[in-house]
Simulated assay, not measured.
Amino acid sequence: MWSDADEVALREEAMEWLAAWTNDGLDAISYEDLGDFHFRGKKFPLKDRQLGIRKPAGMDSALSITTTYRAPGKQRPYEDRLGGDGLMRYKWDGDDPNKFTNRGLRAAMNMGRPLIWFWGIAQGVYKPIFPVYIVAEEPDQKQFVVATDGLQNIESTGHNVDEVTKRYVVQETRRRLHQPVFRGLIMQAYGTRCAICMLRHSTLLDAAHIVPDSEPDGVAAVRNGIALCKIHHAAYDVGIIGITPDYKIGVRGDVLEEIDGPMLEFGLKGLHGSELRVLPSSKKEHPDRDLLARQFRRFETGSVARGLRADFLRSNAES
């Protein structure tokens, strides 16, 4: 049997190790690389090879949970989802509430133990989210309620949560779970390269939404995202550059007329009329043309007054 001190030490070392391997959660990790973790001088699996819940032998509570990778258009065996209260739901392992894996999660809930959530973003590749906490159980729906760090003291699971608290919880869940998973999916699809300039440094790359996630159509799916370096992400978000449904880049008219240093000249102005240089290998993961068209109309609205539309259409016709 594990002592409380040993169990706490294991969780702390595992999460510190994951933080080091993933650039403090920016990057994903493969199942193969997970095998490099050691505890007290011995290899120690952080996730189960086959089961969704990892409860080490001799330990009362579970250590990690896994959400299986789902290829575009496919469904996962279990659908882990966001509840109306902004907290995530994680399904039981099977139908038996007393199965050892479900008991392990229940014990983690009762003991307030932090867990690691491995979210599949490709076959054998996972985005680790940690720490997360089991804060409640919903037996009628055969699922547990999962909160991200800082939310574990919320006692309600949605029945009496006021709107301000609910909005906060939703925002925090997006920040702690949805955004990292979305980033992992985008980086996997784009080979950790900026679609515009091909920069490969992961710490300088963002998963940019085409339609912001604050809007109804701003889904956290690869088709609504593009891997961009921080400069081009910021330029896209503020409307300095736009991307057409044909994956061509436009630069705002007033910026084209500016004179500045090499970053403006080559990093922005030089993009005008060019195409995205990196796209996912799978066409199903290419940026959604309808979403790009919607956002490009907004770009045009801010650019027409600056005389960009005619110049941009002319340059495209000439190319």
Rank of each mutant, 00 (worst) to 15 (best):
K230V: 10
E257A: 11
S281G: 12
H272V: 10
A310W: 05
L256G: 02
N224I: 00
S282N: 13
H272N: 13
E300A: 07
I259N: 01
I231N: 03
E285A: 10
R306H: 11
I249S: 09
H233W: 05
C229W: 10
E265V: 04
L308A: 04
L279D: 03
E215G: 00
A208R: 01
D217A: 00
E265R: 09
R306G: 01
L271Q: 13
G239R: 07
V255P: 01
D290L: 15
D290C: 09
E265W: 03
E285N: 09
D246S: 14
V219K: 01
P216W: 15
L268A: 01
G270L: 13
L268I: 15
A234N: 03
D246T: 14
R289Y: 04
A234R: 11
D206E: 14
R306W: 05
A310C: 04
E275V: 10
D246H: 11
L291P: 02
G302L: 14
L291C: 07
R298H: 08
D288S: 11
S282A: 14
K269Y: 04
L292H: 07
A207T: 06
E300H: 04
L228R: 11
F266C: 07
G273A: 11
F312R: 04
S274K: 14
A220N: 10
P216C: 14
E258K: 10
R294E: 03
L264W: 07
S281F: 07
V255R: 02
L264K: 11
R309E: 08
S214K: 01
L271P: 06
V222H: 05
E257L: 12
K269R: 14
H286T: 06
D260P: 00
Y247P: 03
F299Y: 11
D217S: 00
P262F: 13
I249Y: 09
D254I: 05
R297N: 08
R223M: 13
R252I: 10
S303K: 06
G270D: 09
D206F: 08
I259D: 01
K284C: 09
V255C: 03
V304Q: 10
P262I: 15
G270V: 12
F296T: 04
T301G: 12
E285L: 15
A221S: 14
P280Q: 15
G253E: 04
I243L: 13
G273S: 07
R289P: 13
K230C: 05
Q295G: 02
S274W: 06
D311S: 09
P245E: 11
S214R: 01
L292R: 07
I210H: 00
D254M: 05
L204E: 08
P245R: 02
L228G: 06
K248S: 13
L205T: 08
A234F: 05
T301I: 08
K284F: 12
R223V: 15
G218T: 00
H233C: 06
L268C: 01
D217P: 00
D237G: 03
R252Q: 10
G307L: 12
I231Q: 04
C229M: 11
